[in-house]
Amino acid sequence: MKPWVLGLAGGIGSGKSAVADRFASLGVHVVDSDQAARWVVEPGRPALARIAEHFGAGVLQADGTLDRAGLRARIFQNPQEKAWLEGLLHPLVREEVERHLSLARSPYAIMVSPLLVEAGLHRRVDRLLVVDVPESLQLERAMRRDEASEEQVRAIMKAQASREERLRHADDVLVNDRDLTWLQAQVERLHAFYLTLRGGVQ
């Protein structure tokens, strides 16, 4: 039987990765759209050639890989270029994610995406789990992890769906405001519940 798909979403610094890692350690097949986004622009893949053609060879590093920071800086101030890049990459990332989900052999599979709600991808999953965290904690964690300024983190948070928007679409919410041991116990509790579901519903 084809596994049903759980969407895993949460804003920057919410702890999505820690949650995904714990589910993976329990034997759940996890596909991360951020990873898929990296795969589709690897050297030798058609997307990378198209990007270099469009933006110029300046977006490539000496070893032929994509200069992500350089590209981000170029599109950050330019909505048209950002739209062009998204138009190229989103369908490719979706295909890559679908391909990896189709390899799942666990009772359910997880699709992790920071932009699940923003990109309308929540409609492609059977159930949505949102990792939620108070904004102040989100800021503090993301600043520490990425060595970023408060201004940078706030700009990313602004580009993501609001907490309210994410929670509105959630079937399950995991509030990640304690330590890792507590978080892992919550994931185990959810996993036991998910194993009782068929197609993401009771």
Results as ranks from 00 to 15, higher is better:
4 W>A: 13
9 A>P: 01
9 A>Q: 02
11 G>L: 08
12 I>Q: 05
14 S>C: 12
14 S>W: 03
16 K>R: 12
17 S>I: 10
18 A>K: 02
26 L>M: 06
26 L>R: 04
26 L>T: 06
28 V>I: 15
28 V>L: 09
30 V>K: 03
30 V>D: 14
37 A>I: 07
40 V>F: 00
40 V>S: 04
47 A>I: 06
50 R>Q: 15
54 H>R: 11
54 H>A: 14
55 F>P: 05
55 F>H: 06
57 A>L: 05
60 L>V: 13
61 Q>E: 14
64 G>R: 02
69 A>F: 00
76 F>K: 07
80 Q>H: 07
81 E>L: 15
82 K>F: 06
83 A>E: 12
83 A>F: 00
83 A>I: 04
86 E>S: 07
86 E>W: 05
93 V>W: 01
94 R>G: 12
95 E>Q: 10
97 V>S: 03
97 V>W: 01
100 H>N: 13
101 L>D: 10
104 A>C: 02
106 S>R: 02
106 S>C: 04
113 S>V: 05
114 P>Q: 07
114 P>E: 06
117 V>F: 01
117 V>G: 03
118 E>M: 05
119 A>T: 12
122 H>P: 00
124 R>K: 03
125 V>Y: 01
126 D>I: 02
126 D>R: 04
127 R>I: 02
132 D>W: 00
133 V>G: 04
135 E>W: 00
137 L>T: 13
139 L>P: 08
140 E>K: 14
143 M>C: 13
144 R>V: 05
146 D>R: 12
147 E>M: 11
148 A>L: 08
151 E>K: 12
152 Q>G: 12
153 V>Q: 10
155 A>Y: 01
156 I>D: 06
158 K>F: 06
161 A>Y: 00
163 R>I: 11
166 R>K: 12
167 L>T: 08
168 R>V: 11
172 D>H: 09
172 D>G: 09
173 V>W: 00
173 V>G: 09
177 D>Q: 11
179 D>S: 08
182 W>C: 14
182 W>Y: 09
186 Q>C: 14
190 L>Q: 10
191 H>R: 03
191 H>S: 09
191 H>N: 15
192 A>Q: 09
192 A>W: 00
192 A>R: 05
194 Y>Q: 05
195 L>Y: 03
196 T>P: 01
198 R>K: 07
199 G>C: 03
199 G>F: 01
199 G>H: 02
201 V>D: 13
202 Q>T: 12
